Simulated scan of single mutants.
Amino acid sequence: MTDSASSPQLITWQTLGRAALQALLDEAGAPLHLEDCDLEGGDFSRLDLRGCHFTRCAIMEASFAGAALGDTHWISCRGRQADFKAADVTDSVFEKCDLNNTNWRRAKLGASSFTHCKLTGAHLEDAATLGLTFADTLLIGAFLQGMSFRKCLLQGLDFSDADLVGADFREAVFIGGSLRNANLQDCRFDGTDLREVDLGGLKLIDARPFRGATISSAQAAMLLHELGLTVLD
């Protein structure tokens, strides 16, 4: 039996449903490393998958609702419309994954990270996100109401058309990325550095949440242009 502190047991090129995956877990007695496996459409809700690794796996429309997914690693997985509702995904890593239109409502995402991922249309309402980080990730049209990005370094995040109502960006620093046409109602930007982010589509009348933020002269000119004013040097 594999010791739980050792590397996860490698399983490759298998199509796995709930029963088959549970049997592999029971046999190994330790986390698994699933590589190039097909879990599409499977029901894995409430399973204990802590410490497992998923590399280039197909998890489209699979359900991990209520599952124990702490300390998992997901690399280059295809997970369109997968369901992580109410799952415990604490301390997990997602890299280069397609997670468009996924459901993370009420999930525990503390200290997890998403890097080079696609989360277009993802739902993260009421998720526990303390210490959650994103980098170079698409969050276009995502539902992120009330999330805190306070004091975060936000690198290459595309929030275009996202629902950010009530989000906290105080003292955050944007490096590239976009807030184009995002819903910024009741957001807080006190002390935020917005000089490198795309603010296209923003109207000056909508700029009140940006009170206390730092913007560039080009961004200021763009906002004034919305009022029909021209800024001359």
Rank of each mutant, 00 (worst) to 15 (best):
L144E: 04
A87Q: 04
A111C: 09
F134Y: 14
W74R: 03
A87D: 03
V93Y: 11
S113F: 07
I75Q: 11
D98C: 00
L99A: 07
T129K: 00
A142I: 07
C97A: 10
A82H: 06
G131N: 03
L144Q: 08
F134D: 06
G146W: 07
L119R: 06
S148T: 13
V89A: 01
R80A: 14
F84G: 04
N101I: 05
D83N: 15
A82N: 05
I75C: 06
L109P: 01
L130P: 02
D88N: 12
T72V: 13
N103L: 14
E125R: 12
D88V: 01
C117N: 09
L99S: 03
D126L: 08
R105I: 08
V93N: 06
H116V: 09
S148D: 10
A128R: 02
D71A: 15
G121H: 05
A87R: 00
T133L: 10
F143M: 13
V89M: 11
F94D: 01
S76Q: 14
Q81E: 15
I75S: 07
A122S: 15
A107Q: 01
R106L: 01
R105C: 04
S148K: 10
G141P: 07
T129W: 04
T133D: 09
A86P: 00
L144V: 10
A107F: 02
M147C: 14
L132P: 04
D71H: 13
S113I: 06
T133Y: 03
D91G: 00
L130G: 00
G131C: 05
L124M: 15
A135N: 13
K96E: 08
R150E: 15
L139A: 12
L119P: 00
H116Q: 14
A122C: 12
L139G: 08
G131Q: 05
R80D: 10
C97V: 02
A111F: 13
I75N: 10
A122G: 13
K85L: 13
L139W: 14
I75A: 08
C77M: 04
A86E: 12
S113E: 12
D71N: 14
A107S: 13
T72I: 12
G121I: 04
T133I: 04
